[in-house]
């Protein structure tokens, strides 16, 4: 999007930490995620998080493309991670 953005409602991805650990049973905020649209890499905890919505939406910090969506329903939690992939961890030094 080329227009200026209004980010009053935005949080960081740590706002989704609880929901993510419920799903994956692990601390996810330090996992690196690459935007499938622009290639920006950020820890999940650093993504733009929109939680004042019918679900949780995590977006790329560079281009605002949707990377992760989470919806809680009475019949289970749905997750869409179509917009991102997790690169292998960097080599330990």
């Amino acid at each position: 999007m080329s227009e200026p953005l209004d980010d009053e409602l935005v949080l960081d991805g740590n706002a989704a930490a609880g929901a993510l650990s419920e799903i994956y049973g692990d601390e996810m905020t330090t996992v690196l995620a690459e935007c499938a649209s622009c290639g920006q890499v950020d820890p999940i905890g650093g993504l733009l998080a929109y939680v004042h919505a019918p679900g949780i939406v995590l977006r790329c910090t560079a281009c605002a493309t949707v990377m992760i969506r989470i919806v809680h329903t009475p019949r289970g939690t749905l997750v869409d991670v179509k917009g991102k992939r997790i690169p292998p961890p960097p080599p330990r030094t």
């Binding site: 227009e3 200026p4 409602l9 733009l48």
Partner: peptide
């Protein structure tokens, strides 16, 4: 409520 940035 919003799922993303507010466009202007």
């Amino acid at each position: 409520l919003s799922a993303g940035p507010t466009p202007r």
